[in-house]
Amino acid sequence: MALLEISIVPIGTDSPSIGDYVAEVVKVCDQHGLKYNLTDMGTIIEGDADTIFSAAKMLHELPFNRGISRVLTHLTIDDRRDKAIHLEDEVKAVQDRLTQKAA
C-alpha cells in the first residue's frame, strides 16, 4: 500500500474560495471507492501505486472539466515496500510515542 497526498488549486477562478472544487474531489473519491482522509491542506488517499497514480490524474483533471484553464497540483507519495502502511498509521505511531514518553 501507498499513500498519496494531493492538493489541487484551480488558478484564474472568479473567487478565492476553492471549497466547491474540494467538495468535487471528495465526491469523486467516494464514487470510486477510494479510501481517503480530507485535511485542511489536501486529501490523502490510500491504495496500491497504480490506484493512487490513476486517482491523481483523474482528480487533477476535475477543474479542467469545469472550464478552468490552469491547475496547480501538488503530490506527495509515501510508497513503503517493507511493510504495509495505511491512513492514520503514522499519526498513531507518534501518539503512541508521546504516551510512552509521558509515562
Rank of each mutant, 00 (worst) to 15 (best):
I11V: 15
I11Q: 04
G12Y: 00
G12H: 01
G12R: 01
G12V: 04
D14T: 11
D14G: 13
D14P: 06
D14A: 15
S15K: 05
P16E: 14
P16I: 07
S17A: 13
I18W: 01
I18N: 04
G19Q: 03
D20S: 08
D20A: 05
V22A: 09
V22W: 07
A23R: 11
A23V: 08
A23D: 11
A23E: 10
E24F: 00
V25H: 05
V25A: 06
V25C: 10
V26P: 00
V26H: 01
V26R: 02
V28A: 00
C29N: 00
D30Q: 15
Q31E: 15
Q31G: 01
Q31D: 11
Q31L: 05
Q31N: 09
H32F: 13
H32L: 08
G33N: 07
G33V: 05
L34Y: 15
L34D: 05
L34G: 00
K35H: 04
K35E: 09
Y36H: 13
Y36F: 15
N37C: 01
N37G: 00
T39M: 03
T39H: 12
T39C: 08
M41Q: 04
T43N: 09
I44Y: 02
I45N: 07
I45C: 02
I45F: 05
E46F: 03
E46Q: 14
D48N: 15
D48W: 07
A49L: 15
A49Y: 14
A49N: 06
D50F: 06
D50V: 08
D50M: 11
T51D: 05
I52Y: 04
I52T: 08
F53I: 09
F53G: 03
F53R: 01
F53M: 15
F53P: 01
S54I: 02
S54M: 05
S54D: 14
S54N: 14
A55Q: 07
A55P: 07
A56G: 10
A56T: 05
K57Q: 12
K57G: 15
K57L: 09
M58I: 08
M58E: 15
L59E: 08
L59Q: 03
L59K: 05
H60E: 14
E61S: 11
L62G: 05
L62I: 12
L62W: 02
P63H: 09
P63S: 08
P63W: 07
F64C: 01
F64S: 00
F64G: 00
F64L: 10
N65S: 14
N65L: 15
N65A: 15
R66A: 02
R66C: 00
R66Q: 07
R66T: 00
G67K: 07
I68P: 03
I68L: 06
I68T: 06
S69G: 14
S69E: 14
S69C: 01
R70T: 12
V71I: 02
V71L: 02
L72S: 10
L72M: 13
L72E: 13
T73F: 02
T73G: 03
H74A: 14
T76F: 11
T76N: 13
I77W: 01
D78W: 03
D79K: 06
D79E: 15
D79L: 09
R80M: 06
R80E: 12
R81E: 09
R81T: 10
D82K: 10
D82P: 03
K83G: 10
K83S: 13
I85Y: 09
H86W: 09
L87W: 11
L87N: 04
L87R: 06
D89A: 11
D89N: 13
D89Y: 14
E90K: 11
V91P: 07
V91I: 15
K92D: 11
